[in-house]
């Protein structure tokens, strides 16, 4: 089953057409990487998919339920209650983490399960600690985000998103704010999630990582999907635009 279907998505900011007719679908258990140059619309696509931005036209379907569609040239979003339900099916990990600085690590993770999902404190805490253990941060439960490194913050942010049991987890350049060393620890955590069969859509500039982890790679440039396929296909592509972007990565990784 398709967890997410996006059909003919268009998005414009002022006079800049950022997304020009983008269609993609994500199946259950699939890991999809979206790569491409800065300004190609990757993040905007993710922000549309997570409904942080509204689309100008096109259709979005989550778990078979329509969230947005175009009707008589106008884009219609589903009713508030329906959107609320749909929103529960996905989570997002931000480039800049966006942790809540006034909450401790464990509270960052448990606050939404308690106050949004209505879980008991004990249950939320137990699950939160388990997640922290998975992230290798069980000793940081009572620390505050400002006391953590960027890599640790990002792992907390991943745990926070996972605590709500999303069907799909989106990552918006999860390592772009980190140095190579910290990048490694975050990528390791994301890899470990892949083993758990969580459906993931990852916007990234880490080519080796995208190649290793993905079932499918989507290459975007100038608001369109230039190419998509298995990592092998995309990284050894003969398409001029893809080659121009991948450059030496293609040579190094494609073979």
């Amino acid at each position: 089953m398709c967890l997410l279907e996006m059909n003919h998505i268009q998005k414009k900011f002022e006079n800049l057409q950022v997304l020009k007719d983008i269609s993609l679908s994500v199946k259950e258990g699939e890991i999809v990487s979206i790569i491409g140059p800065s300004g190609s619309g990757k993040s905007t696509l993710l922000r549309c998919a997570t409904m942080l931005e509204t689309i100008d036209s096109g259709e979005m379907i989550y778990l078979g339920e329509k969230a947005a569609w175009t009707e008589n040239q106008k884009t219609v979003y589903a009713k508030k209650d329906q959107l609320k339900e749909i929103r529960k099916s996905f989570g997002l990990v931000f480039q800049s983490f966006n942790l809540f600085p006034h909450f401790s690590v464990i509270k960052n993770i448990t606050d939404a399960p308690i106050h949004v999902q209505g879980k008991s404190k004990e249950e939320a805490y137990r699950e939160g600690m388990e997640l922290l253990k998975k992230m290798g941060l069980e000793d940081k439960a009572d620390a505050y985000p400002c006391q953590l490194s960027g890599g640790q913050c990002q792992r907390v942010a991943i745990a926070r998103a996972l605590a709500l049991n999303p069907k799909i987890l989106f990552f918006d350049e999860p390592t772009s704010a980190l140095d190579p060393e910290l990048t490694g620890e975050v990528l390791k955590v994301i890899r470990s999630l892949a083993d758990l069969d969580i459906t993931m859509v990852i916007v990234t500039h880490e080519m080796a990582f995208a190649r290793d982890i993905s079932d499918r790679v989507i290459f975007m440039a100038d608001g369109v999907i230039v190419e998509e396929g298995t990592p092998e296909e995309v990284f050894s592509s003969t398409n001029e635009r893809t080659q121009a972007f991948l450059g030496r990565y293609g040579e190094m990784l494609g073979r």
């Binding site: 942080l52 931000f94 939404a112 106050h115 999902q117």
Partner: peptide
């Protein structure tokens, strides 16, 4: 945005 994604 983070709060919105978490369902608050």
């Amino acid at each position: 945005e983070a709060a919105r994604l978490l369902g608050y």
